[in-house]
Design a protein around this nucleic acid. Structure first.
Length: 423
RNA sequence: GGAGAGUUGGCAGAGUGGUAAUGCACCGGACUCGAAAUCCGUCGAACCGGCUAAUACCGGCGCACGAGUUCGAAUCUCGUACUCUCCUCCA
């Protein structure tokens, strides 16, 4: 949620900024009007309650059974009736206000490109040479099916579209990739390794911003109401929900491997083949809890941490800064890392690193106590480090050889029990 | 799934209808060259509103969460969540 004080104090700026994210300024106007009404009503209710407390104390002093006591009780009852009425009005206003507040996306950070969609994204840096082949490179699904290490047809039979079986060296490669990623994050980059719950409750989904606006994008278990996580960001960020941390403990870095489940509602027809867009996929996630003043720097570091995975795998990639319109709901600033995919000849998203500033912290109530004793919301960040299936796809395509075999990137050889080629 | 117990400030821990004891810690003050010890303190939670330069002041709220009874609820009633113990089941 956006800090309500910012909306109150700088309404025009907020309207302008949210407009770049597709929010109608009228919605902000409505918010401001409701906020004003709400505060007036709260002041009224508080004053009535104050009167009640005063009279109630007098009742005790006077002896409730006395004539005077009975008269006072009559007065209090009257005030209570009025309080109930005003409170009901206030609650209605608060509900309307809340309805808007929880659906407003985060304010975009200063300095990010303004634009309606991905066409306004800006490349910030590039790494690696685009590989050249003396044959026509195949798509990863073709390579995987030919080597009998990926099987989409059987997965379709068993589950449906957008599912896959990994087999033999395919399964081993997937496992090698995420073990390599986790080792890098934990051994060299300072992240705590976590294995989180994969089913979470609705409040948790609200905390990171998936609910209430994006509930159709996820799978919810009918019998219990829990949701299958669409990313480990959800259980990782909510780890400290409703808690107050100590300033001296910040920043805190978490990483977790997990399956991710997404309904992919609205992406019919897109990326229908291969490992790119699945209902179930693996991801190694990074999450940071940071002091507000450090969070943008932490975002830079996190993006480099994600890039490091690709560098060591020798995969060409670039980093782009997302425009206002392309930035996700909870994020103030996002870098996408895109890896080169030879068959299509394009860069494809393999990581997305976001600074959500205090937006999620407000929803999930994650705060920290400063040295001076005051309490404030901290900043949360999240990033993929990386999407495992897409990494496997990139390896298959970038390391494919003319004979249909696939070379194993050097850093993965130990994780592949010494195998240097998948054949 | 069944039975029982529990959930109060940073921690410990009282309080079964009259508006949250006490101890430790913390902070401020006294004492001291300084520290420790000792003593003193409308100290003491998060959150909301008002007024603000303010983390000052005033008020609300506040005893796991939600509802109810009452002039008044930590305390009584109902519901929910979680924790612990035992039974059952189980990878």
């Amino acid at each position: 949620m956006i800090n309500p004080k910012i909306i109150r104090q700088h309404p025009e700026e907020v309207k302008a900024k949210l407009k770049t994210r597709g929010v109608d300024p009228k919605e902000v106007d409505e918010y401001i009007a409701l906020d004003e009404q709400n505060r007036t009503a709260i002041a009224k209710v508080d004053d009535l309650k104050r009167q009640k407390n005063e009279l109630s104390a007098q009742v005790k002093a006077a002896d409730p059974k006395s004539e005077k006591g009975q008269a006072l009780i009559k007065q209090v009852k009257k005030i209570n009736a009025e309080t109930t009425a005003v409170e009901a009005e206030q609650q209605e206003v608060a509900d309307q206000l809340n309805y808007i507040a929880v659906r407003l996306p985060n304010l975009p950070a200063d300095g990010i490109p303004v634009g309606p969609d991905e066409d306004s994204n800006v490349e910030v840096r590039k790494w690696g040479d685009i590989p050249e082949f003396d044959f026509t490179p195949k798509a990863h699904w073709e390579i995987g099916e030919n080597l009998d290490i990926l099987n989409f047809e059987r997965a379709a039979k068993v589950s449906g579209a957008r599912f896959v079986y990994y087999k033999d060296a395919g399964a081993r490669l997937e496992r090698a990739v995420y073990n390599f990623m986790l080792d890098l994050h934990t051994e060299e980059q300072g992240y705590h390794e976590i294995i989180p719950p994969y089913l979470v409750n609705a409040q948790t989904m609200f905390g990171t911003g998936q609910f209430p606006k994006f509930s159709e994008d996820v799978y919810t278990v009918e019998s219990t109401g829990e949701t299958l996580i669409p990313t480990a960001e959800v259980p990782l960020t909510n780890y400290y929900a409703q808690e107050i941390l100590d300033e001296k403990d910040l920043p805190i870095y978490f990483t977790a491997f997990s399956p991710c489940f997404r309904s992919e509602a609205g992406s019919a027809g897109r990326d229908t083949r291969g490992l790119i867009r699945m209902h179930q996929f693996h991801k190694v996630e990074m999450v940071k809890f940071s002091k507000p003043e450090d969070s943008f720097e932490e975002l830079e570091k996190m993006t480099l941490d994600a890039q490091e995975v690709l560098k060591r795998l020798g995969l060409a990639h670039h980093v782009i800064m997302l425009s206002t319109g392309d930035t996700g709901f909870s994020s103030a600033k996002t870098y996408d890392v895109e890896v080169w995919m030879p068959e299509q000849g394009v860069y494809r998203e393999i990581s997305s690193c976001s600074d959500c500033v205090d937006f999620q912290a407000r929803r999930a109530m994650i705060r920290y106590r400063k040295e001076d004793g005051t309490v404030d919301y901290l900043h949360t960040l999240n990033g993929s480090g990386l999407a495992v299936g897409r990494t496997v796809a990139a390896i298959l395509e970038n390391y494919q050889q003319a004979d249909g075999t696939v070379k194993v990137p050097d850093v993965l050889v130990p994780y592949m029990h010494g195998a240097t080629v998948i054949k």
